[in-house]
Amino acid sequence: MNQGGKIRVLVAKPGLDGHERGAQVVAYGLRDAGFEVIYTGLRQTAEQIVSTAIQEDVDVVGLSILSGAHLSLTRKVMDGLKAQGADDILVIVGGIIPDPDIQKLKDMGVGEVFVSGTPVSAIAQYIASAVSTRKNAG
């Protein structure tokens, strides 16, 4: 992954919900925080997300999910990354996530969950510190 280079983040929306606005706000916000953001927009399959994450060699995958299907969609992405030996990529999830599901997502290996309305600056801060911790560890 990157060494002293830019932090690369994939922002993707898995599943069928058509609300792109939140993901766009995050994508622009992360760009303004100095990250290189690969934006692939709506209706991504888990396979598409995994293959993009690998080819782009991103440090972070950010999933934006408003459909309510966050558990199954995230599970698919996590499994896909693992199957490709790419589970060292940090996965974060944003969207409308009920409280009890936050821990479930974390148990799957998700680094952090950001519920709708979280300021992008908080997401950016989390990414910057989590990525640098990982790099120092690995």
Partner: peptide, 9 residues
């Protein structure tokens, strides 16, 4: 910012 939005994909 030095960041970029890479949207061609």
């Amino acid at each position: 910012s030095g960041g970029a939005l890479l949207g061609d994909r």
